[in-house]
């Protein structure tokens, strides 16, 4: 059992790592427009938390969302097609990196506004309770989000109504370029504790430690024990956004980055596997990513005539502006 879960945790992390590395290549090759927020270095958090979840549990994610979406079970092939803006993508090319979602897997989407997913996850948790289900919802967010008022309001609602929601704060040390020391008064877990939400801090570079904490929290939620909070600390290996690769913004010293990268979650967990097993997983992931890249680049681009499809769930259409969608100026 433990061996199997160790393999799965590693496989998820390896998939996220290679997905991100291939995606960065595609950004630089001009195949992914707009860039991405790489999750490299934080893989153990998504892998550990999502390993404690079922398919019907719900997650909300962040602008740095690829790891969560993949760990919760989205197809990496269609995910990469989404990032490259293809019609075959998870969101039919309408969402891209910052909005990737798969509702069939309970993935209510990455989100472009910091802290916005908390209340959405909490509402989904409420719906589960009303339905009589023991589903839980997880809201991932970063250390920057704990300065958002709406998230603090949400802690209050979740605690007040004892809802089965798990708040996972990924403390990677930086809100874009602002350090935690520059942005957080008091402590991160103290925010949750103020609302009576049980909070723990874990090593976010250790997938097994994250999984243990997540299992406790999820069990509490399923049993009607209300919300939980996990602060998982890890180091963001890469840029806040691939834009930095060219902009060369300096806010971390080379020494700091090297020290951060020395605690690689794939190695920390990888040593728990037999070397041959690890190599086999690596090879599988490599093949899967090759397939994903080929599928994405071979997939058709969306038809511009459908730019406003899905704008309304009811199919309503407003008037066109004066652009490609108009055949003539009316």
């Amino acid at each position: 059992m433990r061996e199997r879960s160790d393999m799965e945790l590693y496989r998820t992390m390896r998939l996220i790592r290679r997905f991100e590395e291939r995606a960065i290549e595609l950004v630089h090759a001009g195949e992914i427009v707009g860039g991405i927020h790489p999750y490299i270095g934080q893989e153990a958090i998504a892998a550990g938390v999502c390993a404690a979840l079922r398919d019907d549990d719900v997650i909300t994610s962040t602008h740095r969302g690829h790891g969560h979406v993949l760990a919760k079970g989205a197809d990496p092939v269609r995910m990469l097609a989404e990032l490259t803006g293809r019609a075959t993508g998870l969101n039919r090319g309408r969402g891209g990196s910052m909005h990737a979602a798969d509702f069939g897997k309970g993935i209510y989407g990455a989100n472009g506004i910091v802290g916005a997913g908390g209340a959405i996850a909490t509402g989904a948790a409420w719906a589960a309770v009303k339905e009589g289900s023991d589903r839980v919802a997880v809201s991932f967010f970063g250390d920057g989000a704990v300065s958002q008022g709406v998230l603090l309001e949400t802690f209050n609602l979740a605690a007040l109504w004892r809802l089965p929601v798990l708040f996972v704060c990924e403390n990677n040390g930086y809100a874009t370029t602002l350090t935690v020391a520059q942005s957080v008064a008091g402590s991160i877990t103290g925010r949750a504790e103020a609302f009576g939400i049980p909070a723990v801090s874990v090593d976010g570079a250790d997938a097994a430690a994250v999984l243990d904490a997540a299992r406790d929290a999820v069990a509490r939620g399923r049993a009607g024990g209300g919300p939980s909070f996990i602060e998982a600390t890890a180091y963001r290996f890469d840029a806040h956004h691939t834009w930095e690769h060219k902009a060369r913004v300096r806010y971390r010293s080379d020494e700091e980055v090297a020290a951060g990268r020395s605690r690689d979650p794939l190695d920390i967990h990888g040593v728990r596997l037999d070397e041959g097993v690890r190599a086999g997983i690596d090879a599988d992931v490599e093949a899967l990513m090759a397939e994903a890249v080929a599928f994405a680049l071979d997939s058709p681009r969306p038809d511009p005539a459908g730019a406003l499809d899905h704008l309304y769930a009811t199919g309503m259409r407003g008037r066109n502006g004066i652009g490609l969608l108009d055949t003539a100026v009316r």
Partner: peptide
């Protein structure tokens, strides 16, 4: 908590 309960409703609506 208008902001929280408005998005709370969004989450509940997404869930049915």
């Amino acid at each position: 908590s208008e902001q929280a309960f408005t998005s709370f409703a969004t989450g509940a609506a997404l869930a049915g």
